[in-house]
């Protein structure tokens, strides 16, 4: 029989709930959710993990990632995660935040959580736009990029420059693992998964603050097809936000 000769090579991780997400077609949040879920399963931490969702498109992360969860106020996820982690230092605590949440309204909270070396994991999804509210300019919107609140393109003279968060956070003493990855093609998706796994392992070993910035697409608000949006990451976003390792502490380097 055919079935007896075939094994399962790909299935939904049990850490991902069996529901249809609310994300738009072509959005890469779904890919990143799956990566986090796979890592939770592979590290066998599903029942030790407490997630902190943020405000933005990923506000419903708790509907898809199957673990204990709370939902923070806009930008405050790192502060809320600090409260959870300090009370339960033996549990795994992570935040899942977009660029509006983390780099604009929550800038103080993320910088100080990193500076304290708060032993949490941060999944930072950077798609250069406020998605949930319909595509307004974000702190990471590229110069010249058109959004609903920068309709002739971001003019850096009046609207300022995009913030490079990984570079900024890498300067803090408490940060142990700060890397930027992308999910614009399968190879980069695999590298992103490795980084997410490492970021959780850093926490499991008590090595301090770990953040993975992930360049992500928002086809609907960018006004592009899903495919063109991935090309936009590859050709435009990566130029301003270079992929790479921005800080890896010696203790993290020693992790095997």
């Amino acid at each position: 029989m055919l079935n007896e000769t075939l094994g399962v090579v790909y299935e939904r991780p049990h850490t991902l709930t069996d529901v249809i997400t609310h994300y738009c077609p072509g959005c890469t949040h779904g890919v990143i959710h799956r990566l986090v879920a796979e890592v939770m399963q592979e590290l066998d931490i599903q029942h030790e993990t407490i997630g902190v969702a943020s405000v933005g498109c990923s506000v419903f992360a708790y509907n898809y990632l199957d673990c204990d969860f709370c939902e923070a106020a806009h930008g405050r996820a790192p502060a809320m995660a600090t409260g959870v982690k300090r009370v339960h230092p033996d549990k795994i605590v992570f935040t899942y935040q977009g660029d509006g949440d983390l780099a604009s309204i929550g800038l103080a909270e993320i910088v100080h959580a990193a500076s304290r070396g708060e032993n949490i994991t941060v999944i930072f999804v950077n798609n250069g736009v406020y998605g949930m509210t319909g595509g307004q300019m974000a702190p990471t919107t590229l110069p010249g990029m058109k959004t609903t609140s920068s309709q002739t393109g971001r003019d850096v003279v009046t609207m300022g420059f995009p913030l490079r968060m990984s570079e900024l956070l890498a300067t803090t003493g408490g940060a142990s693992y700060i890397v930027r990855r992308s999910v614009h093609d399968p190879g980069h998706i695999n590298q992103t998964k490795k980084a997410i796994k490492k970021a959780f392992q850093v926490q499991m070993h008590g090595l301090g603050f770990a953040l993975v910035e992930i360049l992500s697409s928002c086809p609907v608000n960018w006004g592009m097809t899903a495919h063109d949006a991935l090309d936009y990451i590859k050709e435009k976003m990566v130029t301003y936000f270079p992929l790479g390792d921005y800080k890896i502490s010696d203790a993290v380097k020693a992790l095997k």
């Binding site: 407490i50 902190v52 709370c70 923070a72 106020a73 405050r76 502060a79 809320m80 995660a81 600090t82 409260g83 959870v84 982690k85 300090r86 009370v87 339960h88 103080a108 909270e109 100080h112």
Partner: peptide, 21 residues
């Protein structure tokens, strides 16, 4: 923990309260 602001302090309290403390 001395927080970076009152905003952060109350949200840390929020997290700790959710954690049952």
């Amino acid at each position: 923990l001395q927080a970076e602001s009152e905003l952060a302090a109350i949200n840390m309290v929020y997290g700790a309260a959710c954690a049952g403390a």
